[in-house]
Design a protein around this nucleic acid. Structure first.
Length: 410
RNA sequence: GGGCAGAUACCCAAGUGGCCAAAGGGGCCUGACUGUAAAUCAGGUGGCUCAUGCCUUCGAAGGUUCGAAUCCUUCUCUGCCCA
């Protein structure tokens, strides 16, 4: 019979950084009962494989699931291969594009590898919700739909906002919350986790479970963390996300670029640093914000890639940006010359990519520099400059602040 | 089924015959200042080997015109009202 940490310890761990708990008294009761009976609670987290990459925002809820695992409970990870084909309307102001089964399955594969960085996959019960949805008849679907009303759906902020602003809402989007709720019924969830934007869907699970004569699940939400811009929620489509499988150096650098104001939230949601320590780290009078951020970047990168990689990321960051040295690894670019030379903008395009007009703009604005690695001197490229093989020999092209290319000629 | 309104670049949105590659804002890029932070300021933001030049773009296809994002026709999609 498994033994569990004390209920108070458990609560402290699993509720770290939580926003809503519905409801906490019930959660405590269940934890007590589980400790007494030795029966782990079933904790559900659903992810929709709607894109091939998970990002740090996803790990907030995954980390809570991991906390439950660490406390001895049963993690149930729902791969929403069917719900992904609907597209979760949560927090969206427009209908999501519908994915095909093949796309969803390919994404699901990449998810599992990435989820393993946070969860102990060996102890996860993994279920695809196509398992039960694919088996439903149209009549079953109708019965499911009959359990909710249009008004109830429109209570939801994102739906009524779209409705009020005369934006389209597809009928199938109303089915999404029902599907997610039904997942809870099928797997008999004791607890479901999700972001605050999922609250409506999580509560739907409670309602359906009740109708099915089950005990209603406890719903725990965590915050939706902001992305690199510090304003909008982290999302791949907004381009402000840090992917779980981002290269260590890149991950470290990206964490360093977040606004200071994000640090307390990220420490709480993405690390295990105790609350008191977070306070002192995020107090500029006690800790230089840069040093706090270095620590944050090290912890996050370390969790995803291991300590040595995090250390290497830190070194690369410090040398490249604090000391202005060239990074250790730079992509090599072979530059084609015409009549023995190449114009500045053409050089930028060949190395950095983008359109010719784009490259020209960068050059015009002084964003392209030739660096001599021997003495680390920089020469800005001018618009009319023409470079010969000799000019480029052993040089590094720097485009903007963070793009470096080691040049070769042919 | 009937009536009305709408579809503009990454997003929002102005433009309703030539001055439109298309205002303004957001985003993004570059530069200055910095801690590769934020804030602020300045510039840029369709493409073309570089041009007071050409090509492509205002839902789609046709048409009118010397000339169309702008006018006409048909179609597609969306919203609203009535049934």
């Amino acid at each position: 019979m498994p033994t569990f940490p004390s209920v108070d310890d458990q609560l402290r761990h699993v509720l770290r950084g939580a926003v809503d708990v519905i409801d906490e008294a019930d959660l405590r009761k269940r934890l007590e009962k589980s400790a007494a009976s030795g029966k782990p609670l079933r904790v559900k987290l659903g992810v929709d494989p709607s894109s091939p990459d998970l990002h740090l925002g996803h790990t907030v809820q995954m980390r809570r699931l991991r906390a439950f695992q660490d406390m001895g409970h049963q993690a149930v990870l729902i791969i929403g291969n069917y719900t992904a084909m609907v597209g979760d309307p949560s927090g969206k102001n427009k209908t999501r594009p519908q994915l095909t089964e093949a796309e969803v399955e390919a994404n699901a594969q990449t998810y599992l590898a990435q989820a393993g960085k946070v969860l102990d996959l060996a102890r996860v019960e993994m279920r695809r919700n196509g398992e039960w949805f694919a088996a439903m008849s149209f009549m079953d679907v109708l019965r499911l739909c009959a359990r909710s009303t249009v008004s109830q759906m429109l209570e939801r902020e994102d739906f009524h906002a779209r409705f009020d602003s005369e934006q389209p809402i597809s009928l199938h989007e109303f089915v999404y919350p029902l599907m997610q709720g039904w997942d809870s019924v099928v797997i008999k969830a004791d607890i479901e986790l999700g972001g605050t934007d999922q609250l409506f869907n999580l509560l739907m699970g409670r309602r359906l479970q009740e109708q099915e004569g089950q005990q209603r699940q406890v719903c725990i939400t965590g915050p939706i963390i902001e992305g690199l811009d510090g304003v909008q929620k982290m999302s791949k489509s907004l381009g402000n996300a840090i992917a779980i499988n981002a290269e260590p150096n890149d991950m470290f650098g990206k964490v360093m670029s977040i606004p200071d104001a994000l640090m307390p939230g990220w420490f709480t949601q993405l690390t295990r640093v105790p609350e008191a320590e977070i306070k002192s780290l995020c107090d500029p009078a006690k800790t230089h914000p840069r040093d706090a951020k270095l620590k944050l970047a090290g912890l996050i990168t370390g969790e995803m890639h291991g300590q040595p990689a995090a250390e290497a990321g830190r070194e690369a960051f410090l040398s490249t940006f604090s000391k202005g040295e060239l990074p250790a690894d730079m992509p090599e670019k072979v530059i084609e010359l015409q009549d023995g030379k190449v114009q500045a903008w053409a050089l930028v395009r060949q190395a950095h990519g983008g359109s010719g007009s784009d490259a020209r703009r960068v050059v015009q604005q002084g964003g392209a520099r030739l660096v001599n690695p021997a003495d680390n001197t920089e020469t800005a490229l001018t618009e009319k400059a023409e470079l010969t093989a000799n000019d480029l020999k052993d040089k590094v092209l720097k485009v903007g602040k963070r793009n470096f290319y080691r040049l070769q000629t042919r």
